[in-house]
């Protein structure tokens, strides 16, 4: 059951990633990216990393994608973006880079074939475990972030407000 779900989600992730790269229309590409990010979030959920999955959806599929779509719509692609790519020869660089990444992937897969490395324990990724750390050991940095957010908010208001 789990493996069927995994294959489905993985296929969705790979398919949407391909769609992102192959689509010429920037908005379509952005929407494919949303699907890709969401399916990766589903994979995180299957691994028991609930918090990471939620953060992936909220931060990446939510906030960052909205920003992307805004940027694409505001800067409507002109001829330069849709016409033939002036840097076409540079695409050859993709071959060695891709080969390098492929080799890395092979090495990692081979290393993991015999199961998880010794000494590795499943890390509790639940919201509860995270909250416990956040409100005990890391309480001070957490509180400090509130000052950081206040400063960022004041800064945004200062820069974005039209007239005082």
């Amino acid at each position: 059951m789990a493996s069927v779900a995994f294959v489905l989600i993985a296929a969705l992730a790979v398919g949407s990633a391909l769609g992102l790269v192959l689509k010429r229309n920037a908005i379509h590409g952005a929407l494919f990216l949303v699907v890709n990010l969401a399916s990766v979030a589903a994979l995180y959920l299957m691994l028991g990393a609930e918090f990471l999955a939620a953060a992936q959806v909220i931060v990446y599929a939510g906030a960052i994608m909205v920003l992307f779509v805004f940027a694409i719509m505001v800067l409507i692609p002109g001829k330069e973006e849709t016409g033939p790519d002036p840097r076409r020869p540079w695409r050859l660089v993709a071959v060695p880079v891709g080969a390098l990444l492929g080799v890395q992937l092979l090495v990692v897969v081979r290393a993991l074939r015999g199961g998880a490395p010794a000494g590795a324990q499943p890390v509790p990724g639940s919201v509860e475990a995270l909250a416990r750390l956040l409100f005990t050991q890391y309480l001070f940095p957490f509180e400090l972030t509130s000052v950081l957010l206040l400063a960022a908010m004041v800064g945004v208001l200062l820069l974005a407000r039209r007239r005082t």
Binding site: L144, V147, L148, A151, A152, V154, G155, L158, L159
Partner: peptide
């Protein structure tokens, strides 16, 4: 970050 972000603004 608390030191840097206000500097940008």
């Amino acid at each position: 970050e608390l030191m840097s972000i206000p500097l940008y603004v």
